[in-house]
Design a protein around this nucleic acid. Structure first.
Lengths: 134, 134
DNA sequence: CTTGACTCCGTAGCCGGGTACAGGGTTGAG
DNA sequence: CTCAACCCTGTACCCGGCTACGGAGTCAAG
């Protein structure tokens, strides 16, 4: 398969394929006599793996590690699981962060919603004074 | 106040102050005869406002808009509120995203946790085949 | 044989939010 | 007077993940 076909099937641009090659996510495919890359069919699933893992919040470096683990045996399975767990923890921490941000923002907007006599914007004031943990 | 003092009080680096100046977040302060910036005390709260708003997920461009609104009257208060609400919506959408990512990741790790006879890693397989919405 | 689509390579640019560095001038204490 | 610590400017670099560009070679159809 040529690069544009692999790219189209995996839903990426052909340049992205070369980029993944440089990053060690996709191994260098054999070439034609004139230097064109010729990919095995498995390259498509490999790239899809990358995109899927990215959707789950893995960085490209982590995906590369996962892929290299996938080439190994059962010991590597444990490593993969550990990586997934740590990703999960990071994700949960991030969610908790955003929840806190949301809480503060909701409060801020509510403050602002209350009728006020004076013409100062309570939202801007609240932000300015840093009502919490600031 | 000199730049390093403002920076220290607001918890940023002096360069960051210059950066904010370039970005229009902090107005150009007057200078001494030899060209040193001399900040009014209000500059510290201005920078703290920026950091506080950033914690709530506003981009620097949005913060700049908020600050310019803060200089205005009651009409601008409505705009500020609208900006905060739209930020809130974006935040909630992002949280929902992360929740979906978390769900998938939890499932993945659980799959992996189940005892298996064969030595393939179910996590890696699952990622590869893209069990959902892929 | 020409034309247009594909491919190659290297390099540079984008986003956001800074951080670092080079090469100078200034200030204030000892 | 000297020295460190500050300040000035402009520019380049960092992260991650692409995306675009320029200039050249190749392939297949007409």
């Amino acid at each position: 398969m040529r690069s544009s076909e692999v790219a189209a099937r995996a839903g990426v641009h052909p340049q992205t394929l070369r980029y993944y090659e440089r990053r060690g996510l996709v191994s260098e495919p054999p070439r034609t006599a004139t230097g064109y890359r010729v990919y095995p069919a498995a390259a498509v699933s490999r790239v899809r793996f990358v995109k899927r893992a990215q959707e789950l919040g893995f960085t490209l470096d982590e995906v590369r590690d996962l892929l290299h683990l996938a080439d190994g045996g059962p010991d590597d399975c444990d490593s993969a699981r550990a990586l997934a767990r740590s990703r999960l923890r990071a994700l949960e921490a991030r969610i908790a962060d955003l929840h806190r941000m949301r809480e503060s923002l909701v409060e801020l907007v509510e403050t602002c919603e209350r009728p006020r006599r004076d013409r100062r914007c309570p939202l801007l004031d609240a932000l300015q004074t840093g009502r919490k943990e600031a």
